[in-house]
Design a binder for these strands. Structure first.
Lengths: 360, 360
DNA sequence: ACGTATTGTTGAATCGATCCAAAGCCACGT
DNA sequence: ACGTGGCTTTGGATCGATTCAACAATACGT
């Protein structure tokens, strides 16, 4: 309004330049959206006006509302945002999600927050066409939140017992864990220990089968079920297998190993519920001069690339991470109202050098 | 329209539930945006109506238009999207950007595309309040595109010679490179080779100082200038120092070393323009039984975390990556119209085990 | 000269919310 | 009976574009 309004940033709208160029806003819109249908002379005039007035092209905010489609998918997690760039599993998954997005021209919005109140708000107000939810932690709440948006969404790694109605892509944790355990029993191992993923939000420490059965996170529960089903099958008394709940970081894993190896009967085989746990364990073992796989064998879970180059390379259960990412994106983008139902992908045992015959 | 429209997804608007609850749309809006100002009874009625009609809360698309602010910043690069998750430098940078965003409650949109036409479109239509542009590659074009949006934006690692008017955060490449070279000359090295970052879009291969001076990427140019200024200072004939242009990946680095070590006069010191290059070089050297730092010393550039745990740990020039991320986010979010001008951050030489006294 | 394409342009309607000035309602004091 | 003030609620204006049916202008065939 005031003539000296040059300090204000860009109050210039499409309508303004339309007026300046002496055309209707409809025509002005066409100049940008479908230049070929407007006469060259007019087009030039409008473009010149735009240039002169410092107009940066149609504001997507306006277009968006009309079009209804954002053309971006949101990836949500309850972890801090930097999780996407720190965690190996997340990184591989994100790389494959982003490839799928690149291929279809969709954008990616990272959704997360420092506290759960803000998380809710961020999910409610994320400008996306759908969500991919990382259920690593606080899964149920996230799923609940995402569901409330009434947008297509798919949960990654949300497992069996949860609400049937939510679309989910996961792997067969029970079968995978079974594979890992069987591999070790076939190598002759009888004394096991389990390094578990989080069971509840309660930190880390020794835990029990009963606790895990009540676990908040079904992935943790299912993997334990898989392990124990297989161990029981070959008559190992699972009630004597120590289970240590970690929070998937170095500190808790090392504490777990301190605990496990403090016992009288030390294990010859360790079942780690994630590669990250297994890799931290490898460090601890090396530092304690326990050879792998000479003294102790260890099998991870996930199949992150770091496992292939660790010392020794990690025997693990590899998830088809890339495939999962692709499917998730596809599920969101092609969603036509009917929710894709839950999909369970197969996993594969990859034997590398961290497992060998039992020495006892 | 048709009574059997249940297949259609969510044509239910705030106005619909307002009508259903028998209140005005203004009141309905308040129920969600400022529940405390609407009488409890009415509030419950509206919420019930919303629930009954399957309303997922106010659509951010609408809110957005009104509010004008997206509350998200876009991070753009000309690399494929997965670059953000693959490249160590990008990852550290993104982690710090995302921390800064978490702290202020802003979201992050990743902007990229398979081809440059789509890139332009993606940048034009990204729903963001500003851009952080990774100028690793195709920098100028990206900056141009971003500038056209007339949104606040800051370029990362865009250097000296470029347009003065664009806000940029970078490090002092010349000084950093000088530090690296000086460290090696002080250790007695006289025979150098340079593994360069991309000079142009043309692939990899041996190159020359003249070529690099004309480099598309000022970071590459400035680092070489820094190296050579220092080498010249101690009377090393830089015209005889081989420069090999890589594309920052294993293949090109290995090809470069094949080339460099095929010559008659092999170097005792390698200046690598990135840690990623240096780490790949370390692998090559190990495979060729060339000891580091016994036979050859190598100094990287960037300061990525992998450098601290490589074998041997990498001597490098560390950039204040976290600080850069923080500053970039701050520049966007606090931008009040006046563009923050260019900022050059200091770098630091961190001596680890990949450099030692010259053996000759 | 007059209908008929062809091509370009207009202006109203729409997308889904938020904001705000004005009005309604109710109780209270005088 | 009437003014005052505190809550609520209302309805119109607005954000910035796109879309589309209708209209204007020009060229073409007969």
């Amino acid at each position: 309004m005031a003539p000296l309004a040059s300090g204000k940033t860009r109050p210039v709208r499409l309508a303004d330049i339309a007026k300046a160029a002496g055309v209707s806003h409809g025509t002005a819109s066409n100049v940008f959206a479908r230049p070929e249908i407007v006469r060259e002379e007019v087009r030039e005039r409008v473009k010149a006006a735009a240039e002169a007035m410092g107009y940066g092209g149609p504001d997507p905010k306006g277009r968006l509302l009309r079009a209804g489609k954002v053309n971006a998918i949101g990836v949500a997690t309850a972890e801090p945002l930097s999780y996407f760039f720190d965690d190996p599993f997340a990184r591989v998954m994100m790389a494959s999600i982003s490839q799928a997005c690149d291929a279809t021209g969709a954008g990616i919005s990272l959704v997360s927050a420092a506290n759960s109140e803000q998380l809710a708000w961020n999910i409610q107000s994320a400008l996306v066409d759908g969500f991919i939810v990382f259920c690593i932690d606080g899964g149920s709440k996230l799923v609940e939140l995402a569901r409330e948006r009434k947008l297509p969404f798919v949960a990654l790694d949300l497992d069996s017992d949860d609400d049937e109605a939510v679309a989910a892509i996961g792997v067969d944790n029970i079968a995978g864990a079974g594979l890992a355990a069987r591999h070790l029993t076939e190598l002759g191992h009888r004394r096991f220990a389990v390094l578990a993923l989080p069971v509840a939000d309660s930190g880390f420490g020794p835990t029990t089968q009963e606790q895990v059965e009540k676990a908040f996170y079904s992935g943790t529960r299912d993997r334990l079920r898989g392990y124990f089903a297989e161990l029981s099958r070959v008559d190992i008394d699972v009630s004597r297998v120590p289970i240590y709940e970690t929070v998937n970081d170095e500190e808790s894993v090392w504490a777990g190993l301190d605990h496990i190896f403090a016992g009288a009967e030390t294990p010859t085989a360790i079942l780690a519920m994630s590669d990250r746990i297994a890799l931290h364990a490898l460090d601890w073992l090396r530092q304690h001069d326990i050879t792998v796989p000479g003294d102790v064998s260890i099998v991870g879970f996930d199949g992150v690339p770091e496992g292939a180059v660790s010392k020794p390379p990690l025997t693990t259960i590899v998830q088809p991470i890339a495939e999962m990412g692709r499917l998730a994106v596809k599920a969101i983008l092609e969603n036509d109202g009917s929710p894709t139902s839950r999909q369970l992908l197969p996993v594969e045992l990859v034997v590398r050098a961290s497992s060998g015959p039992s020495s006892t």
